[in-house]
């Protein structure tokens, strides 16, 4: 097969990145110095995580972002800095709390999806033979079904809740992740040191855990960062299509969807503020991903 995936190339050990705190610290500083854009992305990501935790602890202008507190569609004012929404809730509090929701959905789907993708990808590759062939057909099939059909049907079957949104995103991302992992593992299997390990009689499990897994870690981190932004966008799109999180959940996508059903006169504040948050978050995760890729991917490590 001649398929190549750009995020799946290379593959020399990257585990020194995560060997210990000093190493991690050093590599962070290193990253910040060499990749200022990525560092900014990372800083924003940290701020977002902080905001998410704070809002989860109800440190918000209006502690309950689900409560209707005023008239509908108020313009920004000192009392409601971002105005109020379609049933009179404080948009600022909702957008801030939306950070928690979005990171919950994003991190949840990324951790589950990519981990599952890795496990399935590696298992299938190592199983080889008919199992692998059959499994790859399923992956092919999933890849060629428009993602929307999968997501919409899954949401329709399971009903709307944040966890089901995560599941729908996971199933949508599974096939491409498995693909990437597979090509990665195939490359690694042919690497000299793996061949050497096999030659000295190491068991497959040992090869997987000692050699393949650590090498995949770099890919894992890179993919996780990219897919985090992707998951936030997908969550928003699902909301727009009417199958996302329950309408009262203050996810950024949900707030945007409400805005998109209004004329600009009423909906503009609902559009602007969550729009900016999504924008910043996805942008941050993407530049962070780019930087990690540059640093962790050995082929690009030249400079």
């Amino acid at each position: 097969m001649a398929t190549r995936d750009i995020t799946a190339e290379g593959g020399s050990p990257a585990r020194n990145v995560l060997l210990g705190i000093p190493a991690a610290y050093r590599s962070t500083v290193d990253l910040a110095r060499r990749k200022p854009l990525g560092a900014v992305g990372g800083a924003i990501a940290l701020i977002l995580i902080f905001v998410a935790i704070a809002s989860r602890l109800a440190i918000l202008p209006v502690p309950d972002p689900y409560a209707s507190v005023g008239d509908i569609f108020l313009s920004p004012s000192p009392e409601y800095p971002m105005g109020t929404d379609v049933i009179g809730r404080d948009i600022l509090s909702r957008v801030l709390y939306g950070t928690w929701i979005s990171l919950y959905v994003g991190l949840g789907s990324v951790l589950i999806g990519i981990t599952a993708g890795f496990v399935l990808g590696i298992t299938s590759t190592y199983a080889g033979g008919f199992v692998d062939l059959a499994f790859q057909r399923v992956v092919d099939a999933l890849m060629s079904i428009p993602g929307l059909i999968l997501a919409l049907s899954i949401m329709a079957v399971l009903g709307s809740s944040l966890n089901n949104v995560i599941l729908a995103i996971v199933i949508g991302m599974l096939a491409p992740v498995i693909r990437t992992v597979r090509s990665q593992v195939l490359t690694l299997k042919e690497m000299d040191y793996v061949t050497a390990a096999r030659a000295i009689g190491a068991r497959p499990q040992r090869i997987v855990f000692r050699h393949i897994m650590p090498n995949c870690l770099a890919i894992y981190i890179i993919m996780a960062t990219y897919y985090l932004g992707f998951a936030i966008i997908i969550e928003a799109s699902l909301s727009f299509l009417g199958v996302g999180a329950p309408p009262d959940e203050p996810s950024w996508g949900g707030i945007l969807t409400v805005a998109s059903r209004e004329t600009p006169e009423t909906g503009i504040w609902l559009l602007v503020f969550p729009g900016i948050f999504i924008f910043i978050a996805v942008l941050a995760f993407n530049v962070l991903g780019d930087a990690l890729r540059d640093v962790l991917d050995p082929r690009l490590r030249g400079r």
Partner: peptide, 27 residues
């Protein structure tokens, strides 16, 4: 780069507000 991001954001903001036609509509 953070300045860049800020500029981008503010441009987007201006853009969005402009298209909203002053966006002063009350409830």
């Amino acid at each position: 780069p953070s300045a860049l991001i800020l500029i981008t954001i503010s441009l987007t903001l201006v853009f969005l507000i402009a298209c909203g036609g002053a966006a002063t509509a009350p409830a």
